[in-house]
Lab assay of single mutants.
Amino acid sequence: MEVRTIKVFTTVDNINLHTQVVDMSMTYGQQFGPTYLDGADVTKIKPHNSHEGKTFYVLPNDDTLRVEAFEYYHTTDPSFLGRYMSALNHTKKWKYPQVNGLTSIKWADNNCYLATALLTLQQIELKFNPPALQDAYYRARAGEAANFCALILAYCNKTVGELGDVRETMSYLFQHANLDSCKRVLNVVCKTCGQQQTTLKGVEAVMYMGTLSYEQFKKGVQIPCTCGKQATKYLVQQESPFVMMSAPPAQYELKHGTFTCASEYTGNYQCGHYKHITSKETLYCIDGALLTKSSEYKGPITDVFYKENSYTTTIK
């Protein structure tokens, strides 16, 4: 009895394709271990004539594949690729409408935090270190965002349907971005203890939790000093293409032309909904596939993004 075979390709990165001759009487799992086709788990399936010449994702289970996976995804987590594939199996079914010149995501599976993050990423200057993220990001900007969303979920250790947080998501993504040249110098002034300067680099240099107003941050924000008295913390120097200011959701007025974009969060910790506000020729609110415009805006804002380049204080 002759062994019926077909020729397929296996890959971990969709760049390096490895030619395989597979036995049609055995499952993919018996031949390769966990195997995925377009995100779908085909591990328990036997090869079919229609699979001839198709590319299958496999887990990096030998040295060659491990090197290829690390170079593309910059992670050695053995569960990463499987999590990416199972997320992709959902995100490829989502709709990605162009809204006001940006790629958004039609609401499904509690994905409003991903839509808000995706919209924000198209408006701030950011370059990702893992080629996987950078490639998928370019495709997302062009309207094909399924891979990018699935990668975000995998890097953030999230599953489809789980509630997510924009600030946490951005923080994970910033860790995989090139923020080497970003720098922030802060000064804390206390009447009792004097003053202390701190220099922050990388992710810490672009994120701040405690106030939404970048102007206020430049002037000074009140913080408790270690001595128990009130101290003032203010920005001395900022070198970065953008800054992200966050605070627990509270009524906040966004003035046209003073910011790049913002995240609105309605609801409580267990259950809520994100919308995205962007400042173009007027203010726009993007909620999944829905767009509304207004000249002014007041609502429960939790993150505001500002364009920056270089700032030095005039406070002496």
Rank of each mutant, 00 (worst) to 15 (best):
R4N: 11
I6E: 05
T11C: 09
V12T: 06
V12S: 06
D13H: 09
N14C: 14
I15V: 15
T19E: 13
Q20R: 11
V21N: 13
V22I: 11
S25A: 13
S25M: 10
Y28G: 03
G29T: 08
Q30L: 11
A40T: 13
K44E: 14
K44T: 12
K46C: 11
P47I: 10
P47H: 00
P47T: 03
N49W: 15
N49C: 14
H51Q: 08
G53F: 11
F56E: 03
D63Q: 07
D63L: 07
L65C: 04
R66G: 11
A69N: 03
F70S: 09
H74K: 02
T75I: 08
T76V: 13
M85C: 04
K93I: 00
Y96R: 10
N100S: 10
D109A: 04
Q122A: 02
K127I: 07
F128T: 01
F128A: 01
P130R: 04
A132M: 07
L133N: 02
Q134L: 06
D135Y: 08
Y137L: 11
E144L: 07
A146W: 07
I152F: 01
I152T: 09
V160T: 04
V160G: 01
E162D: 15
L163V: 07
E168N: 15
E168S: 15
E168H: 15
F174S: 05
A177I: 06
S181P: 04
K183G: 07
V185H: 00
C190F: 00
K191D: 03
V203P: 14
A205W: 04
V206T: 02
G210W: 01
P224W: 06
G228K: 06
T232K: 08
K233V: 12
Y234G: 04
Y234I: 12
E239G: 01
S240W: 01
V243S: 01
M245W: 05
P248R: 15
T258A: 10
T258D: 14
E264L: 09
E264A: 10
T266S: 07
Y274S: 00
H276S: 06
I277L: 06
I277S: 01
K280M: 13
E281Y: 04
T282S: 12
L283H: 07
G288E: 13
L290Q: 13
K293P: 11
S294Q: 14
Y297H: 03
K298C: 15
I301S: 00
V304I: 10
S310R: 13
Y311V: 10
Y311D: 13
I315V: 15
K316C: 15
